[in-house]
Write a protein that binds this DNA or RNA. Structure first.
Lengths: 137, 137
DNA sequence: GCTGTTAGCTATAGAAACTATAGCTTTTAC
DNA sequence: GTAAAAGCTATAGTTTCTATAGCTAACAGC
């Protein structure tokens, strides 16, 4: 049996976050000690590890909730789980593309300025005048 | 003089967001019509355009606030404005790198699964077992 | 000048995923 | 037995908006 602090250390999930997940019903309310403190077993350790891993990959809580439900039904087809992963992959790729456009724009801004006075600052000017942008964003 | 709706259409900033920026003091409280509706001039149009552009580039409100203050002092050196842009560029690059790691991991997960049953689903298995990951994330 | 539609007003709550605080109690190690 | 560390609940704050409710103003057509 693990205390909340031990669970936190083993999973890398912060204590208030564990309690938050309990409130959001991502994890079940665990047993309590005689003094009303939370006590966790291996089941919950594994489940929280799963959640942590999925969150690190940027999956949303609602997606994780669905994946956890799916994981609890091993006999069902896994097309849905794949769909969630594939969708997320799509949005990660979209975000990368978007950030790369911003990167180009910011690099142009930061490098185009010779650090003189504000009145000639290319950063400020670029922000004021969208026409200076090379691409859409 | 523009109504809030016209200002919104011209800048692409939604009406509640304009009011929110006013509350946050990013833009000054504008004149009012006799019936208490907001009326904007070109000054505010330009300022809101600047804010929109900066937000589209992912800059935080507090950074934008600082850039606006800098822009109001054309005689001052622009090293600070460059610093803000350069810092942001750094964090955009870091985020891209992080997302590319996730992308690799998710692609491996999604492609590794042959869409059978949950019990053999590579997506679910990968999330359960961090050891299956190729790299750190 | 009346009416109807569109636009705008304020104040408050909600979204997402936590994080921080206050004030109190339990556990644990010596 | 006691002191320090850990845990408890409940509530509010973070960030950048977005949505809702209930009301009022502006404007176009008749």
């Amino acid at each position: 049996m693990l205390s909340i602090g031990e669970l936190s250390r083993k999973t890398g999930v912060k204590i208030p976050t564990i309690r938050y997940y309990e409130q959001m019903k991502l994890i079940a309310a665990p047993e309590r000690s005689s003094g009303n403190q939370r006590r966790y077993s291996k089941t919950e350790l594994d489940r929280l590890g799963f959640i942590k891993h999925a969150r690190d990959l940027g999956l949303k809580i609602e997606d994780i909730r669905e994946l956890l439900t799916l994981a609890a039904h091993p006999e069902q087809p896994c097309a849905q789980a794949n769909q969630i992963a594939a969708n997320h992959l799509g949005s990660v790729r979209a975000k990368i593309a978007q950030l790369q456009r911003l990167e180009a724009e910011l690099a142009r801004m930061a490098e185009g300025c010779s650090s003189g006075k504000i009145e000639n600052c290319y950063v400020i000017e670029s922000l004021s005048n969208h026409a200076l942008c090379s691409e859409s964003h």
